[in-house]
Design a protein around this nucleic acid. Structure first.
Lengths: 95, 95
DNA sequence: ATCTTACATTGACATTGTTCGATATGACGA
DNA sequence: TCGTCATATCGAACAATGTCAATGTAAGAT
C-alpha cells in the first residue's frame, strides 16, 4: 500500500504543522536550512550563513529566529558563536 | 542509517519546494488539503469544502487556485462541479 | 577597562497575502 | 431561451511579512 496521509490531526497539530510549513515557505529560509544541514556536523553559525545569502546579518538572524520558533532549528551558544542545527521535525519534513 | 536530507538541489528546485511549503503554510489551506485527502475517492468539490472552512466561497476558490498553481492539487471539472485531488508531490509532503 | 567580534533587537518602509462583496462565467435544467 | 446552480475572477480593505540601517548586548582579546 502506498504512503497514507494522516487525516486525523488535532487543530493544534494542524496549526503547528502550518507554522512549520510557513517557516519553510520562503526561499531564503529554505536555503538557510539546507546550508545548516550541509554544514560540518550538520550545524552552522550565523557568520557562515550570512555570506551565503547575500542579505544583511540582521535579516539572517531574524530568519533563524523564526525557524527556531517553528521548532525546525535548535540554537546553541558556544563562545561568541551561535550554532544552529536541524531538529527531528525538520529532518522529517526535508527528507 | 537515519533519513538523509537532499542537500544538492538546484536553485529552481529550491524555489519550487519553497512555493509548495508556502502554499501549505497557511492553516486554511492545510485544512483544505486534509479535507480533500479525507474526501470520498480522495477528492472533493468546492461545495463540500466551503462549509468546512467557514470562509466565503470566493476565498476558498482563491486558496484552491494557489494550491493548484503550487502543484499540490489537480482540478477536474465534472458537470457543474470542480473536483480537487492531491498530487504526488502533495502526498509526499504530507505523508 | 577598553576594544573588537558575533549576534540580536528595534523601528521603518515597501511588498505581499488574506479576506470579503460584487460580479462574471459556464454548465445544466425547465 | 431563460433561469439557476457551482465556481471563478475582480477590486478593495486590512493584516502580515521581508528587508535594511542603526543600535543593543554579551563574550573574548588586548
Amino acid at each position: 500500500m502506498a504512503q497514507t496521509i494522516a487525516l486525523t490531526r488535532s487543530p493544534k497539530d494542524v496549526e503547528k504543522l502550518a507554522e512549520q510549513f510557513k517557516a519553510l515557505g520562503d526561499g531564503t529560509r529554505l536555503s538557510l536550512m539546507m546550508a545548516v544541514a550541509a554544514g560540518e556536523n550538520a550545524e552552522a553559525c550565523v557568520c557562515d550563513l550570512t555570506p551565503e545569502t547575500g542579505l544583511a546579518q540582521s535579516t539572517v538572524s531574524h530568519h533563524l529566529r523564526l525557524l527556531v520558533e517553528a521548532g525546525l532549528l535548535t540554537r546553541t551558544q558556544r563562545g561568541k558563536w551561535a550554532f544552529y542545527a536541524l531538529t527531528k521535525d525538520a529532518q522529517k519534513l526535508l527528507k
